[in-house]
């Protein structure tokens, strides 16, 4: 299976471990990642407060590149996936805007038709690669580990746009975790927001919201939290010490992993290959238990 690979700005600029783990894991599952020459930002919906057309243009341009490659567009980031989905819906409804954007794209020899399939990590791994191939690739099953899944808002909402998983009872990330040999545990607040969108308005609120989830995971004595969204990861992993300080709970020690890192470990890959040394949450005890990583 060949896909146009769109890592997105956050993964490339900041969440390098995520991209590294994806590049390590995917080829071993028979997924060929084709580089997207000239791809830029997904459009980032908040730009619409300045210019909605600029968002749609930026977003449509990336999709046009995937279209020209004749491949499905594979995104790492929940936010990018939603941005592309929203653009697709908007341009389906607004032929004039589509024509205007295509006129701009013509200068680069590009054309947006809306035919490129969008693939989220859940869709590629859960619906595409599937249980059998993942199970076959797992050489060091994570038996005995219990993790909480954090699918992240943008992978499940808004439900009416058609998202990778169910908005109220998402199960795909849980399945993916289970396929590594670990056990995904249902916990209250699984579909809660990580808070990151509020970062520019009220940092303290973000910490409080994220702290609630980490406390729940800790309280259930789970071995960690697993996500596929770089924004959520930034909060739960990179900001975990700040969260502990803000909510005044120094015992918060929750290992956080990208799903592809966890899968890589189960596939017998070394932690350097998976960028795990960049994780800032206390992942070492988990790594020690897996052993030889």
């Amino acid at each position: 299976m060949r896909v146009a690979f769109f890592p997105g700005c956050t993964a490339q600029a900041d969440q390098i471990g995520y991209e590294a783990s994806v590049r390590a894991v995917m080829p071993r599952l028979g997924v060929e990642l084709a580089e997207m020459e000239g791809a830029a930002c997904c459009g980032y919906p908040p730009y619409s407060s300045v210019s909605e057309a600029a968002w749609f243009y930026s977003s449509a341009r990336d999709m046009a590149i995937a279209e020209a490659m004749g491949l499905p567009l594979f995104t790492l980031c929940n936010g990018c996936h939603l941005s592309f989905t929203e653009t697709k819906h908007a341009l389906e409804k607004d032929a004039a805007l589509k024509a205007k954007i295509n006129a701009k794209l013509a200068s680069e020899g590009l054309h947006y038709e809306g035919k490129a399939e969008l693939l989220h990590v859940f869709e590629l791994l859960h619906d595409g690669v599937g249980k059998e191939r993942i199970a076959a690739a797992v050489t060091k099953p994570l038996t005995g580990f219990k993790f909480g899944a954090h699918p992240g808002c943008h992978s499940i909402r808004p439900s009416k746009l058609g998202r990778p998983d169910d908005s109220e009872n998402p199960r795909k990330l849980d399945d993916l975790i289970n396929w590594t040999g670990a056990q995904a545990v249902e916990y209250p607040g699984k579909i809660d927001c990580c808070g990151s969108s509020l970062a520019s308005a009220s940092g303290k609120t973000v910490m409080e919201i994220a702290g609630e989830k980490l406390k729940t995971i800790k309280g259930l004595a789970l071995d960690g939290l697993v996500t596929t969204c770089p924004f959520c990861f930034k909060v739960y992993d990179n900001r975990q010490r700040a969260i502990a300080t803000t909510i005044g709970d120094r015992t918060l020690e929750v290992p956080v992993f990208y799903y592809t890192q966890l899968l890589g470990l189960a596939m017998g890959l070394r932690q350097e290959q998976l960028g795990i040394e960049l994780n800032q949450s206390p992942v070492d005890p988990v790594l020690a238990r897996i052993g030889g990583a």
């Binding site: 545990v185 249902e186 916990y187 209250p188 607040g189 259930l220």
Partner: peptide, 10 residues
């Protein structure tokens, strides 16, 4: 929300 162990509901 369901408490995963007690099954009480919030």
């Amino acid at each position: 929300r369901e408490d995963p162990t007690m099954k009480d509901l919030t």
